[in-house]
Design a protein around this nucleic acid. Structure first.
Lengths: 205, 205
DNA sequence: TGTACATCAGTGAACGCGCGTTCACTGATGTAC
DNA sequence: TGTACATCAGTGAACGCGCGTTCACTGATGTAC
């Protein structure tokens, strides 16, 4: 790996871990440069100020999360072409992925920054907002595909159902952090999966 | 109100609002005392240090939340003695309460501190943990009462289902903060309500 | 009713420390001719 | 192949500012006798 992206990534890795542990304000540039083995000046070569770090960290997290969802549901689609079963398989894969993390998922950067949003400029807050809206659109699309084949047993707000995937992940991660357990997020996703089975599976149109 | 508790509560109110906006580290004692109209020394008369403030803030939040749940489900039980319908009414009341907040719910202090837990001592972290475990126990108990009357249509992990109430609230609040919308938490609770109807309502034992 | 003392709820100046940021400089690598 | 210059990826000292905390002091209220 070329040394430029290498140092930049190291900075982002250390910053992300620290932000999830202590929050953004308590994450000092001193500790980042000590961890990345560079000098203070080296940090400011890569990021013009601390807000630029926040922006880059969030963007990288969002991109990674989107790539993960793309990959997960593409694999699920290969395994079963029916939209409901694709969704159920994708959620199972997601739950397994969370269970397989040895230390447990460290938490969501979006939730961390959402609970400190006054520290950031409007650009950062908008990044957060667009990410969640993107997932709403993604999952609402998938649920509409399902509803075209399986009539929902109860009337459902499709935007809210789209949000529910993000909501269940975020909620599970909050629990997991507060409880110091490892599999709450995974369990909550499996409960969502059962929900979707009950909601859609009964009667094929 | 006597002036003592008055000043203490004012400090806690200002601290809570600021922690939800900016996080704990970025909440300065200077801004708290300015808002509460006292001097720096006055703050340290009420709290021995910043960690004591965190502990008091969390304890007050947890007590209020517990009182709210007690009240809500007691009222629900008055309206309908059946455990399932009591739960459904209680969740509806909770959702309505969230919708009725003019500025939207400001967010959960537990989630905020869970995402900054390395700033606090073990006592604070334990407070957080015990609160979530308390809600798990509370709601698992209610779900077991329901399951004794209505057989669940799918096998369910009762601890995880107990956690789901907290998880849905926490997840909804994260969304609501990130999106700058007002009713995501309320919508997610209504989706949970539909879930429980599908899971339990069909066949009475 | 008066006096002495204790407690309560603060005031406000002072402390040292760590923070984010700037800046002049540097050595290695790349490019033009 | 050699020389001149530009760019990249940093170094490390210095800056001023705001932070949490301490501490000697104060005026109002409560209590004992």
């Amino acid at each position: 790996m070329d040394p430029k992206t290498d140092t930049r990534s190291r900075i982002l890795n250390i910053a992300e871990a620290s932000v999830l542990k202590k929050g953004f304000e308590a994450t000092s540039i001193e500790e980042i440069v000590a961890g990345a083995d560079i000098s203070r000046g080296g940090f400011f070569y890569h990021f013009k100020d601390k807000n630029a770090l926040a922006r880059a960290m969030l963007q990288r997290y969002i991109d990674a999360e989107n790539a993960l969802y793309d990959d997960l549901f593409a694999r699920a689609r290969e395994l079963n072409d029916d939209p409901l079963h694709c969704m159920l398989i994708g959620l199972k894969l997601l739950a397994e992925m969370l269970t397989d993390m040895p230390e447990g998922h460290p938490g969501c950067v979006i939730a961390a920054t959402a609970y400190q949003d006054r520290l950031f400029d409007e650009g950062v807050r908008d990044l957060n907002r667009q990410a969640i809206l993107g997932w709403r659109t993604r999952f609402r699309g998938m649920f509409e595909e399902i509803a075209a084949v399986y009539e929902p047993k109860e009337p459902i707000n499709m935007d809210a159902l789209g949000d529910m995937v993000s909501s269940v992940v975020e909620g599970g991660l909050v629990l997991q952090r507060a409880l110091r357990e490892h599999n709450n997020a995974s369990q909550q996703i499996m409960l969502l999966r059962t929900y979707l089975k009950l909601l859609f599976a009964q009667r094929q149109i």
